[in-house]
Design a protein around this nucleic acid. Structure first.
Lengths: 230, 230
DNA sequence: ATTTGTGAATCGGTTCACAGCG
DNA sequence: CGCTGTGAACCGATTCACAAAT
């Protein structure tokens, strides 16, 4: 390999490899095979080899990958050799939990500001920080060189939060609010949506229960569903 | 269409459509085109039509989809016509925030138990519940017919939490701990990993900064990276 | 002998484009 | 005429399988 453009699917797995590799150094391992790394990361070894080949030829045939060196290369590729300043917008239950969450400072993400619109929260301390006014977002982003915005507002407030982050120049947003956000093409947006994850689990769980019911011979009334066509 | 096997990618989007549709009824809309639903859900209309076609032919050509009817069909497909009991394992910052999170009871997910190993937490109230002993997990799962386990422990404790959930008969697990969990094939596992999401954003953010630097003519020292090969 | 790196085959999912239907 | 439903074409990602390297 050589030359740019790492597939998105690969980018999404690199942090997983990185975590496994860090665990491995902690257990004193010097080298690791694609097979071993695959097992630790919960993927298969062909995927590991192909993914790593996009970064360069960093393995040694017959031996495997040097753990330390691979950590360095993946970190560099992911931009983790520098720290990133983040702002959490919305200091409710979730915002507070995120602010308190140790171990995402762990990989160079620093929560540099907490903002909210609620006047009763502004000025109050949360985890050795003080909640600031959402109205000051632009200034805060510029002064503290914030590059990542974490949206932890209600669904209703989330689009406004995102718009303000974007106009303050933030180009990376992580959305925890249960709503679809619109952002310009040059802004990266990822979402974490608890209730969607639960609904996906529900789908497969239901399918399992249905299967179980059939297996017990209880016979599902297959289409007692045609009900109320409008 | 007809006959089973809805693609995974489609299953993952159904909750998104459902949410948009619910918003639409609240705004009094009776019917919606694939184009309109696509816009609301942040996807394209071909995808909407193909996805919905896996559920059946629920649209009307020349008109669109009946909002209420589609809500019913998607809910049924996702297994949301019944309630699901959940247990949160690990009552730290995150576990507490999840316990307090209103609006995932909203779609029929009921937090029926909070458990932890920490004796100083057991017996204490959290959001109108009392933290129970992790040791009693099997009994609690059986008694309350819990089908979904939410792992909000530390990385170190997560595999044990998952193992115990599995042996208690739980077949759906949502993992918030920053570690890869091993579960049997018949158990559905989904994960929410804050720090991985941030690392993915970091990758694209870095790429943007690099591009910006080049654009300013500052020329990136392209491979000042071959550094410390081992 | 072992394990990487990678073309080639394959798979799942997306998008196109239009026939079919209201 | 408008919008759905769907084959067909396409595309990105996964897996296979093996030659190359040590």
């Amino acid at each position: 390999m050589r030359e740019r453009a790492i597939p998105e699917a690969t980018v999404a797995r690199l942090p997983l490899y990185l975590r496994s590799l860090v665990d491995m150094t902690e257990r004193g391992m010097q080298t690791i095979s694609s097979e071993g790394l695959a097992e630790a990361a919960g993927v298969n070894s062909a995927k590991v080899r192909k993914d790593l080949s996009y970064l360069g030829s960093y393995g040694t045939r017959g031996v495997g990958y040097d753990v330390e060196y691979l950590i360095y290369q993946i970190s560099r590729e992911l931009g983790l050799t520098q720290d990133w300043n983040c702002v959490i917008v919305g200091v409710g239950n979730l915002g507070r939990a995120l602010a308190n969450y140790r171990g995402f400072g762990e990989r160079g993400f620093r929560v540099s500001a907490l903002v909210d619109i609620d006047e009763t929260k502004i000025g109050k301390p949360v985890d050795s920080m003080v909640v600031e006014d959402f109205a000051d977002l632009e200034r805060i982003v510029k002064e503290r060189e914030i590059s990542i915005g974490i949206v932890a507002t209600t669904a209703a407030a989330a689009q406004d939060a995102a718009d303000r982050l974007v106009s303050a120049g933030v180009k990376s947003i992580l959305n925890f609010a249960p709503t679809v956000l619109q952002v310009p093409d040059d802004v990266s947006l990822r979402k974490v949506d608890l209730s969607i994850e639960l609904q996906i689990l529900s789908f497969y769980e239901q399918r399992k229960s249905a299967l179980e019911t059939v297996r017990r011979g209880k016979r599902l009334t297959a289409s007692a569903s045609k009900s109320t066509r409008p």
